[in-house]
């Protein structure tokens, strides 16, 4: 089913352009930064925005899965990457890899990459739960109308197909099709009737859908794009803040402040390098601050 649920807060009422720009900038920055503090700053910003949008509960499983993946990345990196000069542990000798050396640098590199992964996963989580997919897709409809429609149709038909599978499975079980017993191969084979019926019914439905689209003039000429989204001061503020953070980020990378050297020895943290991180985090937490103010002060609500 559609994961997005409209909630009564400022984040859910943003113009899709502002929301998509914000998420894209977070992802771009997470890819160009390698400094763990800058990456942690991004995580902090996206985390507060997710909480402000009322989707903390939805974010939790993403966090848990990502933490698991971070642990794996960290371990694999520590075992396979022999670079780094601060050896914490000597392991046994294994074929191909030679003697295992677990270094502090390799572990830290793994953690850094893990934080990057967490930022990207959280950004996608935010997109899934706080931005209406149709609205976001509409932004791109001028460039690829047919592709956008195909994606929209998939979103619309996916829940229907899940319902179909459940129903067809029940019907076929009532005809004696054994789906839960027998060997794994047998069970896969027994699913064929369900898949067959699903494919045939989906094909029939797609023809009916195409007919309905033709009856409503689809493909009869150039289409226009319906939109009712309003561009408000809040969108302007959030969009500007996101662009500011992007420009600051690029500047920080240009100056070498947002980069970090893990090998052969961890680079020491320079306070001067981190000033820009503070600017970026402040800019990216603008939606959180506005959302909080939107709830607290009716006057602000009316102004933005």
């Amino acid at each position: 089913m559609l994961a997005y649920r409209e909630k009564d807060n400022l984040i859910h009422k943003l113009h899709p352009l502002a929301a998509v720009a914000y998420i894209s900038i977070i992802i771009i920055l997470s890819l160009i930064f390698s400094h763990p503090v800058y990456l942690l700053g991004l995580l902090l910003a996206v985390g507060t925005v997710i909480i402000a949008s009322g989707n903390f509960r939805e974010w939790t499983p993403y966090l848990l899965i990502s933490l698991g993946m971070i642990t794996v990345i960290m371990l694999v990196n520590a075992v396979f990457v022999q670079a780094g000069s601060t050896v914490l542990f000597y392991g046994p000798r294994v074929p191909v890899l030679g003697k295992i050396r677990i270094t502090l640098e390799a572990i830290c590199f793994g953690i850094g990459m893990g934080i990057r992964l967490l930022v990207i996963v959280s950004a996608f989580c935010f997109y899934t739960y706080a931005v209406h997919p149709d609205k976001a897709l509409k932004l791109f409809s001028k460039f690829g109308n047919k592709s956008v429609l195909a994606v929209t149709l998939s979103t619309r038909l996916f829940p229907l197909m899940i319902r179909d599978v459940r129903r067809i499975t029940e019907v076929q079980r009532c005809r004696g099709v054994k789906l839960d017993t027998g060997s794994r191969w047998q069970r896969v084979k027994n699913r064929l009737p369900v898949i067959n019926v699903l494919l045939l019914s989906s094909l029939e439905r797609s023809l009916q859908l195409a007919e309905s689209m033709q009856a409503r003039g689809y493909g009869s000429g150039k289409r226009t794009c319906y939109t009712r989204d309003l561009w408000r001061p809040r969108d302007c503020l959030i969009f500007s803040a996101a662009v500011l953070s992007l420009l600051t980020g690029i500047w920080a990378v240009w100056q070498g402040w947002a980069g970090y050297t893990y090998y052969p020895r961890l680079e020491s943290l320079q306070l001067n390098d981190l000033k820009m991180a503070a600017v970026i985090v402040l800019a990216l937490t603008v939606p959180t601050v506005l959302s909080w103010g939107w709830k607290k002060w009716p006057l602000l609500k009316s102004k933005i």
Partner: peptide, 14 residues
Amino acid sequence: GMVFQDPESQLVMT
């Protein structure tokens, strides 16, 4: 304008 039999098979958008 034409409305068809099965509501499931004529709606396109979400």
